[in-house]
Design a protein around this nucleic acid. Sequence first.
DNA 1: CTGTATCCCTCAAGATACTG
DNA 2: CAGTATCTTGAGGGATACAG
Lengths: 115, 115
Amino acid sequence: MYTIDNKNYPCCTSVTMRFIGGKWKAVILYHLIDGAKRYNELRKVIPTITERTLSLQLKQMEEDNIIDRKVFTEKPPLMVEYTLTDFGRTLLPVLEEITKWGKTAPEISKKIIRN
Amino acid sequence: MYTIDNKNYPCCTSVTMRFIGGKWKAVILYHLIDGAKRYNELRKVIPTITERTLSLQLKQMEEDNIIDRKVFTEKPPLMVEYTLTDFGRTLLPVLEEITKWGKTAPEISKKIIRN
DNA sequence: CTGTATCCCTCAAGATACTG
DNA sequence: CAGTATCTTGAGGGATACAG
């Protein structure tokens, strides 16, 4: 049994899902693998996410210390960059397997249609 | 872009999360790795899941063809076994990385408390 | 440009009782 | 034993307007 922020998780698997689960976190992390990205760059590569949701997810992952937020300007227009932290980078093998499976699965399951 | 059951997923990562995301699916699959388990056996190893939720998750994964449901009796008391399908077994490398990370992460992050 | 504020809604998930 | 039925709650997420 594990506890994170006063909530209980029954096994190691659920611990990982606590960090990268949900609809968007793994997707955002995937786009940060090859380097820093700005807020609008993330919006462009994830067109179906809303501003609010992207903002909330980034904030949560910043609190979990898996991404880092750096501000490069003092006055608007702001320039902000997001990168993986060292801790976030320990997730790379997990993310790699997740993306790998997502790429090959459509060849096996007829449910998945590639457009 | 990918489409599954008339819903859109922006990248390969979100495809995988569509199948193993959510609070419980990866946990259930983890407990099926080393062989078939019955409904009550799953309840015992995942004590914090409710009957209803376990039932729903199993049904969804059966529809996704990642687990198989076999009934061994004709009249109550029923005996039902759940196993990974061939397609489900393609998720093994993903599940392995997920559990591996969940086991090592507590050594790095102070947020994660092992009880 | 990088977000917040507000409002709303769906759906995952929990609690509990009951059935074939 | 293996679920279903019913009701409830809450978090996740969407749309849009606005702020520093």
